[in-house]
Simulated scan of single mutants.
Amino acid sequence: MTFVAAYWWTAKPGFEAQFREAWKQGTKLIRKRYGSLGSRLHRDQRGRFIGIAEWPDRATWQRAYDARMAYDDEKVRSAFLDALDDWAEEPFLLMEVTDDVLVRSEKSFTP
Rank of each mutant, 00 (worst) to 15 (best):
T60C: 06
V103W: 14
D57R: 11
W9Y: 06
D85I: 02
Y7M: 04
L84M: 08
D85E: 07
R31M: 14
D82R: 01
P91Y: 15
A11V: 02
R77H: 09
A59Q: 13
R104F: 14
S108I: 10
T10V: 00
F80K: 02
A83K: 01
M95D: 09
A67C: 11
V97N: 04
I50E: 10
T60M: 06
L94M: 11
T2A: 07
T98G: 15
K32N: 07
D44E: 08
Q62D: 07
D100L: 14
D66E: 13
D85W: 00
V4E: 07
A83T: 03
L84Y: 04
L94V: 07
E16N: 04
G47L: 05
D44Q: 06
A79C: 10
M95N: 11
W23Q: 09
R46W: 09
T110Q: 11
D99Y: 11
D66Q: 05
I30R: 08
W9A: 02
A22N: 01
F109K: 15
Q45A: 07
R58V: 01
R48F: 01
S36C: 08
I30A: 09
I52C: 00
R104T: 13
K28D: 02
T110D: 08
P56A: 10
T2M: 05
L29Y: 12
Y34P: 10
A11R: 04
S78M: 10
D82K: 03
D100M: 09
R20Q: 09
A88V: 00
T98Y: 15
A79R: 10
Y7H: 06
W55N: 06
Q18M: 11
S78T: 12
A22W: 05
K12P: 01
F49T: 05
F19W: 10
E90D: 12
F80D: 01
G47D: 01
R68Y: 13
L84F: 04
E89V: 04
D100F: 12
Q25T: 07
R33I: 08
P13Y: 02
I30G: 03
M69I: 08
A17E: 15
W55L: 03
D85Q: 04
E96M: 14
T110S: 09
R104K: 13
R68D: 13
L94W: 05
S36V: 02
D99W: 10
A83N: 00
P13R: 01
K32W: 03
F3T: 10
D44R: 06
S108C: 04
W55K: 03
E89W: 03
R104P: 04
T60A: 12
D99V: 08
Y71W: 15
R20P: 03
V101G: 12
K12F: 03
A88D: 09
R46D: 15
K107Y: 13
W9P: 00
T10K: 06
R46F: 12
W23E: 12
E74C: 03
V101A: 13
A64P: 02
M95I: 09
V103A: 15
Y34K: 12
P111T: 08
L37V: 08
G38S: 14
P91D: 07
D86G: 01
Q62E: 10
R68E: 14
F80L: 03
A79S: 13
R43Q: 12
M1Q: 05
M69N: 09
G14F: 01
L94I: 06
R48E: 05
E96I: 09
L81W: 03
D44V: 06
